[in-house]
Design a protein around this nucleic acid. Structure first.
Lengths: 141, 141
DNA sequence: GTAACTGCAAACGCTTTGCACTCCC
DNA sequence: GGGAGTGCAAAGCGTTTGCAGTTAC
């Protein structure tokens, strides 16, 4: 998604466009590892030294509201923000908490088969797979 | 799972069997709506007036450790505890947060098809479907 | 008997809120 | 110019921890 489209989206939904909002949106949309608010904060502070965590959270909630990201709550760790609205599997390393997306072939087809018998309007979904990533497997041996 | 088996499991893993642990385990295993720590607390206090939330949490963490429950973290609400270790879909109402399990036909088959191409050892999974339940749909109209 | 468990209260970490200041439009 | 947004510090909430008293074995 281009900067232009993000600006457009904010305006269309009646929200002001600020440097902070743009920076947060572009950062999150540019990554596929679903960062936490804290990771966003640490990263953005390099270019925006005065940005605050409160603004990060407020903006993330706004992005949720306008449908740009999904918030993934976890038991062991802080929430992660996922900009990917297509059906996919979150591969979550249980050691380092790193997440990467996985798109099995035909997942849309399989998924719609799975839920077709449900006579319900689905407003969202979340699929997680827990494993130990290469890096962490290495560290253990 | 019978009381006998629960007791057995605690002992086998080297943990003492207490009234509180049994009550919490039996309560959670008897329900399929994945209660929160608070719901367990409220419910158990009727029969066990002196039980504490801290004990609930400590026991839930123990049950996680010995593999009896899975903790489901959420963004908008407290964690829920799921005693169901079979592959299933958590149907989560986004209005009242109620959860019920859903077992589509052939889900095991479909699921293994989905992950078969992954050359990874999977240590767990979680599948959520978000919708608005009948009760909440009624309340809105 | 003694190590593990309970219950209390205090601490913790993540997230939200209230408010004065600032900036977008 | 005015209302929305930012940043700070304080509050909030779910969960964990430390510890003295209690219980399982």
């Amino acid at each position: 998604m281009e900067e232009e489209q993000i600006i457009e989206l904010f305006r269309k939904k009646g929200h002001k466009v600020t440097t902070q909002r743009l920076a947060i949106s572009e950062f999150i949309l540019s990554r596929n590892d679903h960062p936490s608010a804290d990771q966003i904060y640490d990263e953005l502070r390099k270019d925006h030294p005065t940005i605050s965590l409160a603004t990060i959270y407020k903006t993330l909630n706004l992005l949720k509201e306008i449908g740009l990201v999904q918030e993934l709550g976890f038991a062991e760790t802080a929430a992660r923000y996922d900009p990917n609205t297509n059906i996919h599997i979150n591969m979550v390393c249980t050691e380092c908490e790193e997440i990467k997306d996985y798109y099995p072939k035909d997942i849309e087809t399989l998924w719609s088969e799975l839920i077709q018998k449900l006579d319900e309007k689905i407003v969202g979904q979340r699929i997680d797979l827990y494993y130990i990533c290469e890096k962490c497997k290495g560290n253990k041996s």
